[in-house]
Design a protein around this nucleic acid. Structure first.
Lengths: 118, 118
DNA sequence: AGTTGACTTAGAGTTAACTCTAACTTGTAA
DNA sequence: TTACAAGTTAGAGTTAACTCTAAGTCAACT
């Protein structure tokens, strides 16, 4: 898969994909005879997971740490599992906080509806 | 209330508070005879709401729009209500998305636990 | 053979949201 | 009264995460 196709499937610009490679989020991307990147289905699977981590507020630096453990091979599975579990806990806390914010917001809106705000 | 006290209660640095004033998030802050800012309990109430909006992902530009409507007086209550309702909908969508991400993450972790990741 | 479009790199520019510096003034305590 | 903590301003610097530019290569059409 070339840059154009991968960019479309990943939903990320070619700029961003090259940047992600530069900062170590995408490792060992193949090249063809003329030096152009060649992406695989595995790469797509990986970038989708990267996007998910990013969407849940993980910084690129943290994702890079996970990516690095991953490229170090099977000896790092426990570290990776722990990293994900830690992130899961943070995500759970984030969701609870946002739910709380939602309640407060609904409360504020009901004040507007009751003409109690000016 | 002086800068130091307000900064502590608001949980924001004096730099940030001056910055928020500069970008129009804090309007009509009183000054004492020597030109120092004097904050009120109302200001604290307001900054707490600003923080909540920010924590739920609203940009400072958007919050500034709300702040501006607010300082235009009671004629803008409907606009403000609509702005908040729109943000509420976005927040609800955000929470649902994050819940989804959480499920996917838990799934991934269970693969690690079942030794199905290397 | 020439043009087009996709690709490459290194490195510069952008945006949001702070965060700090420099130079100065003012209020309080010893 | 002298130190020092806290305040002021304008404006520069920082960080994350892109986003773009310039200058060039390369493969596929016309």
């Amino acid at each position: 898969m070339n840059m154009k196709a991968f960019s479309t499937l990943a939903g990320l610009s070619s700029y961003t994909l090259r940047y992600y490679e530069k900062v170590g989020l995408l490792n060992n991307i193949q090249r063809n005879s003329s030096g152009h990147r060649v992406y695989t289905a595995k790469d797509l699977e990986w970038i989708n997971f990267v996007k998910r981590l990013k969407d849940t507020g993980m910084t690129l630096t943290k994702i890079q740490q996970y990516a690095q453990l991953r490229s170090l091979g099977p000896g790092t599975v426990l570290d990776r599992q722990q990293l994900l579990e830690c992130h899961k806990d943070q995500l759970q806390a984030h969701i609870e906080l946002q739910k709380n914010h939602l309640l407060a917001l609904e409360n504020k809106i009901s004040l507007y509806k009751a003409n109690k705000v000016s």
